[in-house]
Design a protein around this nucleic acid. Sequence first.
DNA 1: GCATGATCATGC
DNA 2: GCATGATCATGC
Length: 473
Amino acid sequence: MSNALYDKTSPISILTHARRLLGKSLHALYPSATPLNTGKGGLGQCVEVYHFGYDINGVSEADFSEAGVELKCTPLKTIKDGSMVSKERLVLNIINYLEEYGKSFETSSFTHKNALLLLMFYLHIAGVDNLDLIFKIIRLWRIPEEDLKIFMDDWNVIHNKIVRGLAHELSEGDTLYLAACIKGSKGGANKKPQKIGGVLADQRAYSIKSAYLNHIIVDSLSHPEMFDGVTMTAKQRRIIEQKKAELGSIVKSVRDYKQGETFEQLVERRFRPYIGMSVSEIAKKLKATISTSHKAISYSVCRAILGVKERGIAEFEKAGLQLKTIRLEQSGNLKESMSFQTIKYKEIVNEDEWDESDWYNTIAARRFLFIVFRKKKGGSADDSVLERVFFWSMPHKDIEAAEAFWRDTRDKVRSGDYAHFIKSTEHSICHVRPKAKNAADTTDTPQGGKAKKLCYWLNRDYVLEIVKEHLQK
DNA sequence: GCATGATCATGC
DNA sequence: GCATGATCATGC
């Protein structure tokens, strides 16, 4: 169909041809096109067939193998401020645990298949036919030099579990930019064998996390040829560009790393000299101003110790890393549970899949950095002592319990029951509790009424257990 | 002492 | 104005 329009051995030629879709839908160029596949990946197949003239039977082959280019169509969504962000993770190739076992980063299926991606971001709108969706950003992408180390660290985290026969314990939360996400249905027929241990594991694919995709989107807007300047408004662009302003990196050069050190180990090493010091002592030693407002203290301490002058820490933002402050009593006890966002009743009722739910994305799909302070007797926030800093993600064994909690909460909202959510005494990990201006502060329910604002919490005991594990090291 | 309900403080 | 990060207050 369109074969003569591009040279399939040339990435630039493929890109130039792809860009004929920028600001347009497939229907705009191919009015008689009909849907090929209604499921996920349907739009990508349509692009391959109608725009690039692929034989539909060859769709499962490597996309542009002669040029080393992998085509990926991925959705954007509009958020409240009008800007566009990634709607979901970008799923790459399936991991074959048997084959990946003996590989290195350089020889892995991830590097082999995804060295150069042709990314086609389109704006997803619920209920609109795939063929009518508009392409907003079209670009080639390879891992930028400054992000390569974290991608390699992430790959190694995944690979280490595969090598140790622990593929069944993989989790998206394990890593920062690159993740192993579940692909296909969970359970029985879709479980895959491992080289070691004999436990069957969920089928997973390499994927790029949503937060990192947002960074690619922002980066694209610095290159006018990459985005659609017509249907993407100036206001949308301005908002997105504001988000990248004032990001500073922790790692300025690969020479910052000690031999064999991971990014996370580098961060922990940088913190080490300050453990045991009070916040005011840290500020004095670094000649830095540290905000001690309870909302800003952890990020402020991080910026000071990690030497980031800018408002945001680039690696943390790109990873969607969740920073959490834990304030221990002088005795080492913990008084409070840990709160998260308000439950959006009108949204949770529409959550069908656990691994697309708000709670999954909050608690199980991301890595955390816990900053632990210990109060001093009668002291102010300035006198809190930095006790410990560590990365954490929810262990695989706890994720199922978090899922059961989410199901219970969702089903109660679906049935209009706002009075019997799980309490902290009823669950090992999490509970539901109020978080509002006052008792009269309510929000809309899917039933058309109002209900008190409640939010997700991690149980006090659970948080304390995590802290204790990391204090013993 | 702790669970639970309530509310505060800040920043976008 | 509201989301977010966090702590306070009460009663069992």
